[in-house]
Simulated assay, not measured.
Amino acid sequence: MGDARQPLYRMKADFFKTLGHPARIRVLELLGERDYAVSELLPEVGIEPASLSQQLAILRRTGLVTARRDGLSVSYALTSPRVAELLMVTRAVLTGVVAGQAELLEELIETGSVPESVS
């Protein structure tokens, strides 16, 4: 994930860049539930096999997932349950943000600051 001598905030930024793709987030969410074979991930993530392979390679390179060969198939797992925790915390933060935005919009509509057509 980068040079260990770089400042921690840069390493964190690189980490969050790794998370900056919807398919990678979806894969990590699924792996937070259980290990998955690539064939099981495909319909759940909804992208082309080559693209899924590429996203899994990125997650492997950055140490977020591990791959294990089972005969002809390859199964993936999270390297740490903390990854699933991070996604749950992110969900809680976003839920709060969205609720706050909805409240603000409601207030603005009530005070007449926003035309009804926006709501």
Results as ranks from 00 to 15, higher is better:
Glu33Phe: 07
Glu33Ser: 02
Arg34Ile: 06
Arg34Phe: 05
Arg34Leu: 08
Asp35Ser: 15
Asp35His: 13
Tyr36Asn: 03
Tyr36Ile: 00
Tyr36Gln: 04
Ala37Ile: 04
Ala37Glu: 11
Ala37Asn: 01
Val38Trp: 01
Ser39Val: 15
Ser39His: 13
Leu41Asn: 00
Leu41Phe: 04
Leu42Ile: 03
Leu42Glu: 09
Leu42Trp: 03
Pro43Asp: 01
Pro43Ala: 03
Glu44Gly: 10
Val45His: 01
Val45Tyr: 05
Val45Ser: 04
Val45Lys: 05
Gly46Gln: 02
Gly46Val: 02
Gly46Asp: 08
Gly46Lys: 02
Ile47Ser: 00
Glu48Lys: 10
Glu48Ala: 15
Ala50Met: 11
Ser51Ile: 12
Leu52Gln: 01
Leu52Gly: 05
Leu52Ser: 05
Leu52Tyr: 04
Ser53His: 11
Gln55Ile: 09
Gln55Phe: 12
Gln55Lys: 12
Gln55Val: 11
Leu56Asn: 13
Ala57Pro: 06
Ile58Tyr: 09
Ile58Trp: 08
Ile58Cys: 06
Leu59Tyr: 06
Leu59Cys: 07
Leu59Met: 04
Leu59Val: 06
Arg60Phe: 11
Arg60Val: 15
Arg60Tyr: 14
Arg60Met: 14
Arg61Thr: 11
Thr62Met: 05
Thr62Gln: 10
Thr62Lys: 05
Thr62Pro: 04
Thr62Cys: 03
Gly63Lys: 02
Leu64Thr: 05
Val65Met: 05
Thr66Lys: 12
Ala67Arg: 06
Arg68Lys: 10
Arg68Tyr: 03
Arg68Asp: 14
Arg69His: 05
Arg69Cys: 04
Asp70Met: 12
Asp70Ala: 12
Leu72Tyr: 12
Ser73Ile: 09
Ser73Thr: 15
Ser73Asn: 11
Val74Lys: 11
Ser75Lys: 09
Ser75Pro: 01
Ser75Arg: 14
Ser75Gly: 01
Ser75Cys: 06
Ser75Ile: 08
Ser75Phe: 14
Tyr76Trp: 12
Tyr76Pro: 03
Tyr76Ser: 00
Ala77Asp: 07
Ala77Ile: 07
Leu78Asn: 00
Leu78Tyr: 07
Leu78Trp: 01
Thr79Ser: 08
Thr79Pro: 11
Thr79His: 05
Thr79Lys: 07
Thr79Gly: 08
Ser80His: 06
Pro81Ser: 10
Pro81Thr: 13
Pro81Gly: 10
Arg82Ser: 14
Arg82Val: 15
